[in-house]
């Protein structure tokens, strides 16, 4: 079943900027979809429309088969949750516990259920030890995880994240992506991720939308998207670094590579196929002191 179905959606800002120009988008239940695009491509506008922060000029948005306008805010926010790019926009309570409990308390749940959700959400993002801490004492990475916990406590069916790895160090980036993968694979949560960071997507996203100036330039699997070098350049994006290296080896050095590896694992396997094992062992012997 479609978790989100967007048809022919248009949106213009008050200054006349046409942010979305008849965009189509869908996401099935349990999918991990990435929306890829450069700055100004319409990613943030799209996700703000999906959570009802903006209202489309024309077109139709359905959440779990129901038109977004027909959902009460209580219904809508238990179906879709948005994690903002900057955690400071989202963490407004004084402590981690109070912030995560904010949503469940707004749903008027019993305090025992509120506490259960707080514990569960903090555990899901590996932030349970931070429970009693003041928000302003957290590191940026911790703030990011706590802001994710705050949204998870609403138990949304669809989780939307705006640049979830922006500003994180490589370890924090990997941790965040692993958390999202776990939520998607184990909790069967539908995830929509807006980003312009391409390196990790092939590992996680089942489908990718490439946006450019308010339109979908291309949609498909990682393999379908990243084999179109021209389209990627047109969208002001780039290939994952490992793919770029293999692409250059293929183009300039004539290395016979099948398709285009998108992950380090794929690239390693292809290179090992090309180089006879004996040659590698010989080389190792040569460089041994």
């Amino acid at each position: 079943m479609r978790a989100i179905d967007v048809r022919e959606i248009r949106f213009s800002y008050d200054d006349g900027t046409e942010a979305l120009r008849g965009l189509d988008f869908y996401c099935d239940e349990g999918e991990f979809v990435a929306v890829l695009g450069s700055n100004g491509s319409g990613k943030t506008t799209l996700i703000q429309l999906l959570v009802g922060l903006l209202k489309a000029g024309s077109g139709r948005i359905e959440i779990n088969g129901r038109e977004i306008g027909g959902l009460s805010s209580e219904e809508l926010y238990q179906r879709v949750g948005l994690v903002f790019q900057n955690p400071n926009d989202q963490l407004f309570a004084a402590t981690v516990e109070e912030d995560v409990a904010f949503g469940p308390r707004n749903l008027k749940l019993l305090e025992a259920e509120v506490q259960q959700r707080v514990t569960g959400s903090l555990k899901a993002v590996a932030a349970l030890p931070l429970r009693g801490r003041a928000i302003h004492h957290l590191s940026f990475g911790e703030q990011k995880r706590v802001s994710l916990a705050g949204v998870l406590a609403m138990r949304p069916a669809v989780l939307i994240l705006d640049e979830p790895t922006a500003g994180l160090d490589p370890a924090g980036e990997a941790q965040m992506m692993q958390l999202l993968k776990k939520l998607n694979r184990e909790e069967k949560m539908t995830i929509i991720l807006a980003t312009h960071s391409v390196d990790m997507l092939p590992l996680f996203a089942s489908r990718i939308y490439v946006l450019d100036r308010g339109l979908v330039l291309q949609a498909g699997s990682s393999e379908e998207i990243f084999c179109q070098q021209e389209m990627i350049v047109r969208a002001k994006l780039r290939l994952p670094y490992v793919s770029r290296l293999m692409y250059e080896m293929k183009r300039h050095d004539g290395v016979p590579i099948d398709g285009l590896p998108l992950t380090i694992g794929e690239a390693r396997a292809q290179l090992l196929d090309l180089i006879p094992k004996e040659m590698i062992l010989e080389r190792i012997e040569e460089v041994k002191p």
């Binding site: 959570v51 922060l53 805010s73 209580e74 948005l82 900057n86 904010f102 707004n106 008027k108 305090e111």
Partner: peptide, 23 residues
């Protein structure tokens, strides 16, 4: 601007004008 963004984030988690507090 920060106030606007924070208000949006609060709305998305069910805020309707009153912050809920625990016992």
């Amino acid at each position: 601007e920060q106030a606007g963004r924070t208000h949006n984030a609060m709305r998305l988690r069910g805020y309707s004008g009153t912050m809920p507090f625990g016992e």
